[in-house]
Simulated scan of single mutants.
Amino acid sequence: MKKQNQEIRDLVYVHLNENGQYVISYGVEFVEFALSLPRSLNHLLLLKHKFDDGEVNRHTQLEYVTKDMIRKLAQDNIYGYGDFCWIDFEENEGLDELTGNEIAELLYLGHLKQHLKMPFYNKLGNRYVYLSRDDGWFNKTYYRHMNDFYRMLGQVISIKLADLKLEKTLIGLRKKRSYPPVNLDIILSLSKFMREGTVFSLRNAVQNRNRIEIPIWVIGDFDNMDDMFEEYNQMKTEKCDAKLVFEKRNREWTLVAP
């Protein structure tokens, strides 16, 4: 079984393909993704899944999840599904208008996690295509608008930091702190690194009274996350390529890069 839970929570790998409008990632789970989008998800057409409470669209013979059921889906053991693939859509009528070729394209997406043609359909109004294997272990996500990815990543890093950096209060209880999302301009400035394949290592974050420093390494393009981990374990002893720095006093993020 793949390295689950703790490792997925404290390491984020991103390989950005702007021309293809997709991102290969490790460490971003569905629940974090859904919470971090600039706009909440609408309905989801499920291409590969093991969710028990979906509804069936008769035209496509595929199950879907309504907006009201996404919270329940996010609370399920999605990692345990194996493959978890979906495309969002606006209205049921859009599903009923899909042609046979378009349905075949969607099935191909879910089966091979590759597109036959760019997977954005005006009939569906979809913003995303989410294709994962062992959710959080390997994810390939298409974005109609790449800024959605940059904003999502900045929010995910702050969520993960809050989950990891629990601090003891005076009476010994552990308190969860909140952090603002990493500024969009900082994430955008890191796109040159992410095009090559980049690790954000919260597990190697250094904290003192004034700041938290999250090291960033450029490690290359990986589809196999076991290979990515092997490369990361070799590089983590070397000087990092940049650092995300959170200043506690003014609660602001900065980027330190050579």
Rank of each mutant, 00 (worst) to 15 (best):
H15S: 04
N233V: 09
R211V: 13
S158Y: 03
S158V: 04
A242I: 08
D135A: 09
I171W: 15
R127Y: 12
E18W: 07
Y26A: 11
I87E: 00
R58P: 06
E213Q: 04
L11K: 15
A34M: 03
L109V: 13
Y150P: 13
Q114E: 12
L73Q: 04
Y64C: 02
I159T: 12
K3S: 12
Q4L: 01
A242E: 06
L202K: 03
P258F: 04
V65G: 05
T66V: 08
M228E: 07
V245L: 15
L11G: 01
G197R: 11
D83R: 15
I212R: 07
L62C: 05
D76S: 15
S158N: 06
E167P: 05
N5V: 11
L37F: 01
I78N: 11
G136F: 11
L184W: 02
S189G: 05
R177K: 11
G110F: 06
E55F: 11
E231K: 13
L255I: 13
G94K: 02
M146E: 04
F193S: 03
F246R: 03
Y79V: 15
G220V: 01
L131T: 01
L62Y: 09
T141S: 05
K117Q: 09
S158A: 14
L190W: 02
T141Y: 11
Y179G: 00
K243L: 12
M228F: 09
A205M: 15
A74I: 05
K175T: 06
D221E: 08
L173T: 12
V23H: 08
R177F: 13
T169Q: 10
K192S: 15
I8Q: 12
K123S: 10
L153D: 06
P215I: 00
Y64R: 00
V28A: 09
E18F: 03
L44V: 10
F149C: 08
N233C: 07
P181K: 12
I186M: 01
K165R: 02
N17T: 14
L244A: 06
I216D: 10
F89D: 03
L161N: 11
R249E: 07
V156R: 07
C85K: 06
H43F: 05
W86M: 04
I216H: 03
D163Y: 11
D76H: 14
F149H: 15
D76L: 10
H49S: 14
F33M: 12
D88F: 00
D163P: 12
L35P: 02
L106D: 03
G54M: 12
E231C: 05
L124D: 02
Y64M: 05
L106R: 07
K67D: 06
Q75V: 05
E102D: 13
D185M: 09
L166E: 14
V23N: 01
R71W: 01
L153Q: 04
E97R: 05
S132C: 03
Y130C: 05
M146W: 05
E7V: 05
V129D: 02
F30L: 12
N139H: 05
T198P: 00
S40N: 06
S189M: 08
P181Y: 06
D76A: 15
I219F: 11
Y79T: 14
L11V: 11
G82M: 04
K113V: 08
S189H: 02
Y179D: 03
L202F: 01
H111C: 04
Y150I: 07
V31G: 11
N147E: 15
F149R: 09
D163A: 08
F89N: 04
L124M: 05
N208H: 06
C85L: 00
T66K: 14
L46S: 09
P215D: 07
L37I: 04
L47W: 10
Y150Q: 11
R151I: 14
